[in-house]
Simulated assay, not measured.
Amino acid sequence: MAKRPTDTWREHVAEEIAERAAGLRRVEDTNFAALYPEPFVLATEQVLTSFENEVRGFDAPSDEEVFAAIRRGVEGLNNVDGTHDDHDYDTIEREELCEFIDGVLSEAGIDLDGLAARRGIERCEITDEWREW
């Protein structure tokens, strides 16, 4: 199962909290809670869950159906990125989100190389048409 980036983000926050509580990290040396506030993480997670559920419901989807699901997922993430002031997807988060999308589609049996080739793009570009983050 593709690991959700939101799980990783929460793990980072929890590790910092535990290290602070154990006296292993000073407050000024923490940043994950500021990078990943729960409302931002939760909104991201809701989009990822919707995308995952949609893809899991596929039964021999057409390329158009797959790209429509990708578009809805990416546009949902665009909305999260644009509506959470002072929080956005930076390079690492963008890579994690794209890896998640790729993983969910691959697990559903979608031939991403073939899908991308039929559209005249590279596999790594399947989100690019709609992605603002």
Rank of each mutant, 00 (worst) to 15 (best):
P5Q: 00
P5Y: 00
T6W: 12
D7Y: 10
T8H: 11
H12K: 12
V13Y: 07
A14G: 00
E15N: 15
E16G: 05
I17H: 13
A22M: 01
R26C: 10
V27E: 13
L35Q: 14
Y36H: 06
P37M: 02
A43Y: 06
Q46A: 15
F51N: 02
N53K: 09
N53R: 15
E54I: 08
V55G: 02
V55L: 05
R56H: 03
R56N: 09
S62G: 13
D63A: 05
E65W: 08
E65A: 13
V66S: 07
F67R: 00
F67S: 02
F67A: 04
A68G: 04
A69R: 03
A69C: 05
I70R: 05
R71P: 05
R71A: 08
V74M: 01
L77E: 03
L77H: 03
N79I: 07
V80F: 12
G82C: 01
D86N: 10
H87W: 02
T91V: 10
E93R: 15
E93G: 14
E93N: 15
C98Q: 15
G103I: 05
V104N: 09
L105F: 07
G109C: 05
L112H: 04
L115T: 01
L115A: 04
A116Y: 02
R118E: 13
R119L: 06
R119T: 00
I121G: 01
E122W: 08
E122C: 09
E122H: 07
I126C: 06
I126D: 03
D128K: 03
D128N: 04
E129K: 04
W133R: 07
W133Y: 11
